[in-house]
Design a protein around this nucleic acid. Structure first.
Lengths: 164, 164
DNA sequence: CTCAGTGCAAACCGTTTGCAGAACG
DNA sequence: CGTTCTGCAAACGGTTTGCACTGAG
């Protein structure tokens, strides 16, 4: 359905060929959408964007292609606790960044903290672990929700220490 | 089914009464199990432990009680990416600790890093967010899996930069 | 006695899978 | 042409919900 393939999509094609897997239109279409956005996309969003582009691709194929993209390490899978996964490509952006997530509207912002990698390694080593990767998510209110006057109430026990 | 209620369970009872909610046997039994373990329990594990203790409580009730425990802030919900949730009580243990998770066997260790709270606040403020909480998970190999000689292979593209 | 809780089973919903027909190489 | 993929629909699995019945206050 698309006429010119982006370099990133071609890169995915190379991965597929390396693995002896067919490079199909559907796989290229899904990759095109994922590499064409800098957002954290849900499967429904990807399906919608494909449909807008004129491609009608089944959810099963989208899931299967995302699995390949994740395996190729070109795309990262995230779970921000919404009950479904989101996908983000790893090209032309900071590698190893972390996320700020708005508890009100779900907006995701990215940040990079240079000490974090060292912290990960130190903490893991202290516990005898061999560190591979980390995931830091900071939850709170994004600027626009704050501006809109949203507040997050707590509730819960007022005095958790009174045990008698 | 239990004869003496632990202080923590009584605390939960107080929360329920404060909210005008009945303190039932089932709720106390679930609380007893959760407060009686320092592990990160799944719903299946909780159900199994209840059954061993002679209580036969439906999953729906366990879920509903865990919801109350989480709302009371006496218990924390976790998702370590296993496809289901785990629950951990927050009494007599370090508040605000983070987790080290073994990619091989799923073991969870806890750690506390004193700079992390400050880092959370600094990063959030820099992005205009009002921080509420964070979640840091470090993934890797636990000591016993390392000892057992397990290694984590990568795969994926060998050279992601070659875009032509 | 009344209102909320419980247990069961069905519903839910994101994701996975089986299978007949379509494409890739 | 054989092998893998695709699309559909059905299956899955953790969690939630509806409803008749039980129990707490």
């Amino acid at each position: 359905m698309n006429t010119q393939t982006s370099p990133f999509v071609r890169l995915f094609g190379r991965y597929l060929r390396d693995q002896g897997l067919p490079v199909t239109q559907q796989r290229e279409a899904v990759a095109e959408v994922v590499f064409g956005s800098d957002a954290h996309l849900s499967v429904d969003e990807i399906e919608g964007m494909l449909r807008e582009g004129g491609d009608r691709i089944g959810k099963a194929t989208i899931y299967r292609t995302l699995d390949l993209l994740v395996r190729s390490k070109l795309v990262e899978e995230h779970d921000f606790g919404e009950g479904f996964k989101r996908y983000e490509h790893r090209l032309s952006r900071q590698p190893d960044h972390d996320h700020l997530i708005c508890l009100e509207c779900g907006t995701v912002a990215e940040f990079k903290h240079r000490e974090l990698r060292a912290l990960q390694d130190r903490v893991a080593r202290d516990a005898g672990f061999e560190p591979t990767r980390h995931k830091l998510e900071i939850y709170g209110l994004c600027p626009s929700c704050r501006e809109a006057g949203v507040t997050l109430d707590d509730e819960g026990l007022t005095c958790p220490i009174e045990t008698m």
